[in-house]
Amino acid sequence: MEYKGVGFILAFCSGLMNAWTFYHAQTFATVQSGNVVQIGYRLAQADWTPFWYSVGAVLAFGLGSAACGFVMTDNLKAGHRFTSAILWCECVLLTVIGILSVLKIVDYPIFALIISFIAGAQGNAFHKDHGMLYGNVAVTFVVQMAFNFLAQSFFKKDGIHNESNLMWAGVFFLVLFGFALGGAIGAFLDMNVFDNLSLFTASAAFMGLAISATRSRTDADPAPGATFV
């Protein structure tokens, strides 16, 4: 889960999930800074229904992170991997939401809360590139680090782990590209091809990662501990 390509795929899936929730429920699935701003904005407008949607998204994201923390801790104490279990849960939940949404069984805002829960779990479980912290569900930090390493590359060739600063800049720019690409493709699919196809696309990507992690001969979990610099 610390491979560069995996970071891109996770960010791509985040973009897909955000495209769905923003289009159907006017909330963000992963970008909680956006939801917090919406809370204040809608509070000032006394627009109560969207206000509670945004509050619910933030709480759901936090609960997803907490639940993931419990799962990770419990599995690590037992000497088990947690990556495959979390990826399969993401895959199954998004597939179920997509099917129910197509059938119009539950309102979109409820599904948006569940997707925020999924995003919270993803963000807590997978947030490193060979030991270096990054974000695949919220990208403010990614933007900061991408341009920081780009600037550092003009002064010093090697940076973290004696690896090229330009390479590190590329890692973070790749994550940004994945996030934006997921949002663009997700919006296009849902609006022009087949509604909810963004969720099925993200589910398929999680399935591929889960299968790869399950079949891996080495430990697929992110290494414990991390560094910012």
Rank of each mutant, 00 (worst) to 15 (best):
L150K: 06
L76K: 14
V96L: 15
G135M: 02
Q144K: 13
M132K: 15
N124W: 00
S84E: 11
A66H: 00
T95C: 12
I105M: 11
F155Q: 11
S33L: 03
T201F: 04
Y108H: 12
L174Q: 14
G62E: 05
S84Q: 07
L10K: 09
L209H: 02
Q45N: 09
H127E: 06
L176D: 09
L10H: 02
F117D: 09
N165W: 02
F126I: 03
Y53Q: 12
F12S: 07
Q122L: 10
L59M: 14
K156R: 12
S116W: 01
F154I: 05
F61I: 06
T27D: 05
A205Y: 00
L87F: 12
F154V: 08
A46I: 12
R215W: 07
H130P: 10
H161G: 08
W168F: 08
I99L: 13
W48A: 14
N35V: 10
R81C: 03
R217W: 00
N148I: 10
S198E: 08
A121Q: 07
K4E: 10
M167F: 15
A67N: 03
V31Q: 04
D195I: 11
H130Q: 14
L113P: 02
F194L: 15
G123C: 00
S153D: 10
L176C: 12
F149P: 05
I115R: 04
I114W: 05
N196P: 00
N192I: 00
L209W: 04
I115E: 08
V229T: 09
A66V: 12
A205V: 08
F117L: 14
G170L: 12
L93V: 15
M207Y: 05
W88P: 02
F228N: 14
